[in-house]
Design a binder for these strands. Structure first.
Lengths: 176, 176, 176, 176
DNA sequence: GATGAATGAGTGTTCATTCAT
DNA sequence: CATGAATGAACACTCATTCAT
């Protein structure tokens, strides 16, 4: 994805591009912040299920929904640049909005006894984000040839099963 | 990773590089095939546990082991080029060796009743490969700043829990 | 010095700039004419010493005074564009005001016997202007790090010594 | 003077340019060092006159000779970039060769009583270099339309007259 | 008059690739 | 077989200039 390609796609001149963005990296940072907006406007409200593992799945769906809407081209652009540390980690800070939200879900889940406590919430958050981003990366690489949301949901649904603590009975049964 | 950087690292001239590889992509295809060699020499023998889910974990460990040994630089190179479709999907064919092996493990697991059958083996293989590659991608992006094998194992171990079928008792207990 | 920088400094839009100047070169031509105004208002009156070599020094001081007041930024702008031949040498015509004034001083000096006649007045004018402009150029290059007027005066004072004809006595002495 | 122009003039591709120079500035630094070579090979041997003021003139002639040989295009290139401070002032260090040589001449002249001592040698060196460079700059600006060596010599010859100390008699005569 | 978004040719620089030696 | 000088299209980015509002 060159600046020229972006400009051609947007039907603007490269001069105009640089009128709005200081450099190519700036565009990507801008793109990053869009996901926060998307979450605030569309996803956050869906994350209030009693079962926090359901919320985890919805969170991941929201993420992949956004990526699909954003499209293959922009996703590749983001992939090519990630991680971006410029501007004092500004986007990272913003990125933390996503991070904090997922962390909150998992922490609540652990408090409620819905999620295993073998791993710290931070560790689980990292895992899930890597997995979800991994799927997004694959999807863009394959030119968006499959339904990202569906596949992400299936994968996360399975992963989430492993996060559910076994009941005392359950453990007993397994031993037998 | 420019061709010149690769050549400098290998102490050869760029002329020599093009004597052995038709182009840069060819090198990457070559790199791809290395993982098959690695699996054949080091990993395949470890995949004979009675519990096929253990084999899944070992398979993934083998993959990330290889990536760690390969190093950040080469990993980035591969990431930057993947997927490579040239030469009639030649490398993809080779890639199938990996694919087939994991498929075999999961199919056996399903036959033995160790792995759920809600999803076809192919689907599970795809999921796992995407997840593992996702971690490799993240690791390279972060300049190899963590122990890829350890993190991959933890993630896969959790995922694999979700693949274990619940016993009839188990389901009954959960209902109660 | 870009047009945008000039406009920012002047608190106008670049549109406004092009409302008043046909192009960037035009601004510089305008800048050139400022020196004539400066000479007419501030320097000419000082050029009436009986000793024309004193007037030469005052002329050069006036020139460097103007450059210092104009500032490093504008000086660089002028240097970067000089000589400007557009508009039928319009600015050169104006430049001639300066030229003619110095020429007049030197011609008078030669008539009065205060200045050697080995070189035509035109030649001496050219030399002095090149020297003074050379100092201005150096000063701007070095970001205005020294007192341009002082250094120019010292240099010209020395040069002017060489323009004073030796008396008959003087020559005689030197021979002895 | 763009890199492309330089390459066209030299009948090489811009890729080749960057094979030999790390960047445009490097070429200019290279150009700078050429003057030292020129002085060492052609000028230094001429600087052994008994009269140090003669040596000053020869020094300046050597400088302008070099510039004329270098040509208008390269001179403009150098002018456009001077002063260059990169690479730890490497070229400045080299530049000092020139500086030191002229300084030595003038210091000797002052010791021998051939040059006035009102100004420190360093000051006179600075003046002369600014003047000579000023002429070179003017010459390049005017597309090399005159004989730089001749004009520089005339100018310096006059300036040098002012550096000759007046005898006691001389001063007395002037008062009368 | 004044604005500033838009333009696009041009700049320094990179890099996969070629080829004479 | 090996070299590395040479290539030139492509890149991110700049900037004088235009023009609809």
């Amino acid at each position: 994805m060159t600046v020229r390609m972006i400009c051609d796609a947007a039907n603007i001149s490269s001069g105009t591009f640089y009128h709005y963005f200081e450099n190519k990296t700036d565009l990507i940072i801008e793109l990053f912040s869009l996901i926060d907006d998307y979450f605030e406007e569309n996803v956050l409200e869906r994350l209030s299920d009693e079962d926090e593992l359901v919320n985890v799945i919805r969170f991941c769906s929201g993420f992949s929904e956004f990526v699909m809407q954003t499209g293959v081209a922009k996703s590749k652009l983001i992939n090519s640049m990630f991680p971006v540390y410029s501007k004092g980690g500004h986007h990272e800070e913003r990125g933390r909005i996503l991070y904090r939200e997922l962390n909150a879900i998992i922490s609540r889940g652990q408090e409620k006894g819905q999620i295993i406590t073998e791993y710290a919430a931070e560790q689980l958050v990292d895992m899930i984000l890597v997995m979800v981003r991994g799927y997004c990366f694959d999807w863009a690489r394959r030119e968006g040839s499959y339904d990202l949301v569906k596949y992400t949901e299936e994968m996360i649904a399975l992963f989430v099963r492993g996060l559910r603590p076994c009941s005392a009975y359950d453990l007993k049964m397994q031993k037998d």
